[in-house]
């Protein structure tokens, strides 16, 4: 499996926390803060849980606050994805 993609992240977000009616996740969202996409701290907690469960990428609770944009999440996953996954 290659690097985790933005599309996969969007799908995971959708499953974890839904999508706000006023937000188009298909737009240019890579650098949009999650708060601007309608996601609160609980939504980020749920996303982090799914990343850990589904990808085996550990995320310390105190790191979640630094995952402010989709790009930040993808970069974090890229650098922590288990080898050979």
């Amino acid at each position: 499996m290659s690097a985790f993609t933005l599309d996969e992240l969007k799908t995971m977000l959708q499953e974890a926390a839904g999508v706000d009616e006023s937000v188009d996740l298909n737009g240019a969202v890579l650098d949009t803060p999650f708060s601007g996409l309608g996601y609160d701290s609980l939504a980020m907690l749920e996303l982090a849980t799914r990343i850990q469960n589904q990808l085996g990428v550990p995320i310390p609770d105190d790191h979640i606050e630094f995952m402010t944009t989709p790009r930040a999440v993808l970069e974090y996953i890229d650098s922590h994805l288990p080898m050979g996954a």
């Binding site: 974890a16 926390a17 839904g18 999508v19 706000d20 009616e21 309608g38 609980l42």
Partner: peptide, 8 residues
């Protein structure tokens, strides 16, 4: 309802 609200 908004999908965000439904999951919450």
């Amino acid at each position: 309802l908004s999908a965000r609200i439904v999951v919450e």
